[in-house]
């Protein structure tokens, strides 16, 4: 504030708006500090590193003095989150780039508004509906037409090595999440694509490029936005809870096979938090999972924003 003269009325306006604004900031700090506060007991008992690197989950009522080894390791859930979100982003990226290019370059102008509305519609759809669809339609479909044939034909590959027991699996969660994150990734890519100056585009056309060459050139100018879309997609995929918990199988297992069920950081919280009263330190371990998600989500988010700022025309 560097106004030469600030009237008392203006001061009142200013100071009356500060509390709600600070409150919004406080919410984020509260989320972070509360998680940290409730995570500390489990770090004290079994060590911070162990909590995130041990492959072992034995809820126990025995006091921690009697623990011979760490009881609450989050490693398989971290791996599960990475695996599931990785599949989601790998599938969603080509689809998102294509959809963004399709809307901007191939679709007749008068239909663009409808297509963008459709993307917004996808982005806001209650996630439980995706979960319901993933559980009753997508899972069985993938099992019959992809998982079983792939296991029989290519079962020697580690990622296809386990027998698909049901439609709920790492793969199902990954494919469902791909569908869910597409609209967010499209929005980021499309916005940057639109921002390419017309003069650049006209210059590209004037070289006599084919549409393919022209689009490839344009995309090469917004690589940071595409990376940013990947990061945003990873963030969205790793933080989704209810839909994932319905299709990921909810079994504590570290697996490289994508037909196996697993737990993610979010699904283990959803599945176990209701029982924390029985196991004294399980609540703290689950908060430690939330803390991990929140911290990494923010790092990924910050990286995405920094990348987007690097695009300058």
């Amino acid at each position: 504030m560097s106004y030469a003269r600030v009237s008392s009325h203006d001061k009142i306006v200013f100071y009356s708006l500060v509390p709600p604004t600070l409150f919004v900031v406080l919410i984020l700090m509260t989320l972070f500090l509360t998680q940290l506060y409730h995570s500390i007991p489990i770090f004290d008992v079994q060590g911070l590193l162990n909590t995130y690197t041990v492959n072992r989950w034995y809820p126990t009522q025995s006091p921690p003095e009697l623990w011979k080894e760490p009881h609450y390791g989050l490693l398989p859930t971290i791996w599960g989150t990475i695996y599931v979100s990785g599949i989601a982003v790998l599938l969603a990226l080509p689809l998102s780039i294509s959809l963004a290019v399709f809307i901007e370059e191939l679709l007749p102008r008068r239909f663009r508004g409808y297509m963008s509305s459709l993307v917004d519609l996808m982005a806001g759809t209650p996630t439980i509906l995706f979960g319901l669809w993933g559980l009753s339609f997508l899972g069985p479909l993938l099992k019959e037409f992809f998982m079983e044939p792939a296991h029989e034909g290519l079962g020697f590959l580690p990622i296809f090595s386990c027998t698909p027991l049901s439609g709920t699996s790492i793969l199902t969660a990954g494919v469902m999440l791909a569908v869910m994150i597409i609209p967010f990734m499209v929005a980021v890519i499309q916005e940057s694509y639109k921002a390419i100056p017309v003069t650049y585009k006209e210059a590209a056309w004037s070289l006599g490029l084919t549409r393919f060459e022209y689009v490839r050139l344009n995309l090469s100018m917004i690589v940071p936005a595409i990376v940013s879309a990947v990061l945003l997609g990873l963030g969205r995929a790793s933080s989704e809870t209810a839909a994932v918990a319905l299709v990921v199988g909810n079994i504590y297992a570290l697996s490289f096979c994508m037909f196996s069920p697993t737990h993610t950081l979010t699904s283990i919280i959803a599945a176990n938090f209701g029982e924390v009263e029985m196991y004294p330190y399980m609540r703290n371990a689950l908060f430690a999972g939330g803390l991990f998600l929140l911290t990494f989500g923010m790092i990924i988010n910050a990286m995405g924003i920094v990348l987007l700022r690097r695009i300058r025309f």
Partner: peptide
């Protein structure tokens, strides 16, 4: 802050409000 809040996993909001 608002941009970060948009990305916070909603299950995290749930367990913090629980606490």
């Amino acid at each position: 802050t608002s941009r970060s809040l948009l990305e916070v996993p909603t299950i995290v909001i749930g367990i913090v409000v629980f606490a």
